[in-house]
Design a binder for these strands. Structure first.
Lengths: 204, 204
DNA sequence: CCGGGCGGGTTTACGGTGTAAACAGCGGTG
DNA sequence: CACCGCTGTTTACACCGTAAACCCGCCCGG
């Protein structure tokens, strides 16, 4: 017989399949609900089978990080000016977070080496920055700051709802804390401020 | 007999004592190494004893968050100008992180109500901002942005060390990634940029 | 003076976790 | 055909958060 499966036996487990299923499970059940046993179930397999393709849960999560970062390379095209490039990166990051709300938190402890998965965008942006007059070190700093601002902003979204709606000095700070529209506006304000302040020293 | 203990029996467990010991254990063993059983041991008590003073581990961690935020109220005095006030808050935050490197990550999911523990500083800063010409909504936004930038920056410190030291377009981005001095400089650059961009629209 | 409740601390137990180790079947090669 | 290496399964272990039962010393009403 040819290699066509006579019975609809499952196709073989693969590192790719494992990583992709892991991302799905995390997005569905959250990071806390993500369990090797659940991952196995999602793959139609026993938990321990996963360990044939991944050395540990931590390493698996590193793989998930890289898979997410790779998604940053696709999207509407990057503008050539540094400001546009950086804010496009930020927007892709926010889209990534919306797509993977559970897994996005993994980016906090990123292994640094994982950045390589986003090499194409990063390279584009670095060249935009160079073209825009940033010195090498300053370009790297600008990029890192935008990335960390964006990730950090997403990770620090406060949870519970606002309790004291009146006559508290904290009132204005807590108001509309959970409103997604305000969240968007806040991010845009912050990003614009950061980019303004990052512009390279003019050399007239 | 007076209330002096005849035998050096341990003094009674208290919510305060529990929270403080929890903070110690977290700082020593990290968030992952923080276990109810270990906390009990640190208090010279069985794990379940803690539950007389705290309804669950999650609630306990909320208490730890509030304890940390309360520390923001002490430190060298706050300048009256909004820029100085905000950057003093940021500096206190960074000191807090240095003091509690393990527990600081809890601030990511802060319950929003916990902000109340920092009411004094927050009130000071809001009045500085008002004095500086910020409208109510803008003042709250500026404050929230600085806080989230600062916390987010701390939480997104990349872990592993830099692998490709040469001839990679990513070279400059990964270089000196783990150097604490560069980390400080990066933070100062970002904070300055953010504050610059946040200045209220001038009304001449 | 006593007895009883009760509040703080301990013991035991349960279902869940990550994963080490032994095992089972199956395909390809001598 | 015998064997071996891969892949997946089973079993087992130590540890986790916490529910429930228990135990004991103190305080208070009679």
């Amino acid at each position: 017989m040819a290699s066509v499966n006579p019975s609809p036996a499952r196709e073989p487990l693969t590192r790719r399949r494992v990583l992709s299923a892991a991302l799905d499970v995390i997005d569905r059940d959250g990071l806390d609900g993500f369990t090797m046993r659940r991952l196995g179930a999602a793959l139609g397999v026993e938990a321990m089978a996963v360990y044939r393709h991944v050395p540990s849960k931590a390493a698996l999560l590193d793989g998930v990080i890289e898979a997410m970062l790779a998604e940053l390379n696709v999207g509407d095209p990057m503008p050539a000016d540094w400001r546009g490039a950086l804010s496009t990166l930020a927007r892709r990051h926010r889209a990534l977070e919306r797509r993977h709300p559970g897994a996005y938190a993994l980016l906090a402890g990123m292994p640094a080496a994982a950045y390589a998965a986003a090499r194409p965008v990063v390279a584009d942006i670095l060249s935009s920055l160079a073209e825009g007059g940033f010195a090498g070190r300053d370009a790297a700093r600008a990029l890192r700051l935008v990335v960390r601002f964006t990730i950090g902003f997403a990770l620090t979204r406060p949870s519970g709802d606002v309790p004291p709606p009146h006559s508290d000095p904290l009132g204005p700070v807590l108001a509309g804390l959970a409103d997604p529209a305000e969240e968007d506006r806040l991010f845009e304000v912050g990003l614009a401020a950061l980019l303004d302040g990052l512009a390279p020293a003019e050399v007239p």
